[in-house]
Design a protein around this nucleic acid. Structure first.
Lengths: 219, 219
DNA sequence: TAAAGTCTGTTGAATTTTCAACAAAAGGAG
DNA sequence: CTCCTTTTGTTGAAAATTCAACAGACTTTA
């Protein structure tokens, strides 16, 4: 676990927790690390929502499948990010989503009950953890707002442009890379892939943007 | 404020806080109540995200307007529910949404800084409030998941049926009322109102459901 | 390096959604 | 009760999305 210390320190869940206390605390919380190869399932839909996950290396996605088998891409997860915490904290018994390793991953698991319920009066770090968890959930809620801002647009073009403008604002630049390939972007925007490609082509011709692979430039 | 005590007690933000401490605490937090007539604006897009709102009476909605002026209905707020907390907790400077009174409303406002930052080591209720806030945000995140489950469907019919099945599950019955009129439902599902009406008509003819005003029955 | 597999852009046809306009129904005010 | 306003359902034409299929570019693997 030590080799991931730098990533762990960046995790918002551990803000304002001293480095010398961190490892001790993780042991106390019963944290453990597992490795997953590409395309393997980290959490699967319907399994108990007992553990909070923290991505230590690699790249994963939160996805949901509807009853027609359509894949719905909910979020991209990057190292030091927390996932599946909302379900554990909200006492949802089983996960309504799956988490899939897109690249080989190392994941740290912490039993949510150890964060929320055990000795919360005696260990000072529990209070800090809960405060950090609240901050993290607030940030997640904001991300969902942004997502809904996108999907609430009615046309492929507007969805794409809303997404790209969000990314440009985040990057503070009009040229930036996105973490999706075309199919994933289509899934995220909830549009048809071929229609998306066509729309990108049109926008290029109109001189609104430039796109090479996953690098986009707004003009 | 006292006349709303029963509603305030139901607010998840005050779970496990004793009734005799509640009023004292609200005074300490600087909570105050305002009245809003129908169609008045409780919070407006772009204003500072300083206050957390708690609806004490009436009915309100969280809405967002895009640059074409389309109204996007994010959530319905009912008495004892908390709103705008995510923006305050996530340190978002200005609100990206508006809150509108649909019926005459009474709203309690609490400065979020008083919950998050003041004397958090000395007053025991602060820790409980933060824990409750975390629970509340986790629940909100789940609601957004459900919302995205709906809007990620591609057709009006699937969106409608996904929504109705969620409501049926919540109500634990195949007959239930929804808190929207047709236009609001269309906004929530992000579909065209006339197309929605047509789809409801078809589903009735097919014997899949029955609908009278805002009471739906799945058959 | 060759072969196999994956990703992307393009097309046209089928299906859906959107839009605008109107009439019927329901609700509210006086 | 009647008038006026709002909500709901209906329609057909226009526009957009989806779908399936394919070819070329790019990657990966053997």
């Amino acid at each position: 676990m030590k080799k991931f210390l730098e990533i762990i320190k960046k995790c918002p869940l551990f803000d304002d927790i001293k480095e010398e206390e961190l490892m001790k605390m993780l042991t106390c919380l019963g944290a453990h690390v597992e490795h997953f190869d590409k395309k393997y399932t980290v959490f699967s839909e319907g399994s108990p929502a007992k553990y909070i996950g923290i991505l230590l290396s690699g790249n994963a996605q939160v996805v949901q499948h509807d009853y027609y088998g359509n894949r719905n891409l909910l979020t991209e997860i990057r190292p030091s990010e927390v996932f599946a915490e909302a379900f554990a904290c909200a006492d949802i018994p089983t996960l309504p989503v799956s988490v899939i390793a897109i690249e080989p991953c190392d994941v740290m698991f912490i039993d949510s009950a150890h964060i929320l319920h055990t000795c919360s009066n005696h260990c000072t770090f529990h209070q800090q953890l809960i405060y950090n968890l609240m901050k993290d959930l607030a940030a997640k809620t904001i991300l969902f707002h942004r997502r809904i801002e996108i999907t609430s647009k009615r046309s492929t073009r507007e969805k794409l442009m809303t997404y790209l403008m969000q990314r440009a604002k985040d990057a503070n630049a009009n040229s930036f890379e996105i973490p999706f390939d075309r199919q994933e972007l289509a899934d995220y925007l909830e549009v048809d892939r071929s229609g998306l490609s066509a729309e990108i082509g049109k926008l290029k011709k109109e001189g609104v943007l430039d796109a090479q692979k996953n690098r986009f430039t707004l003009l």
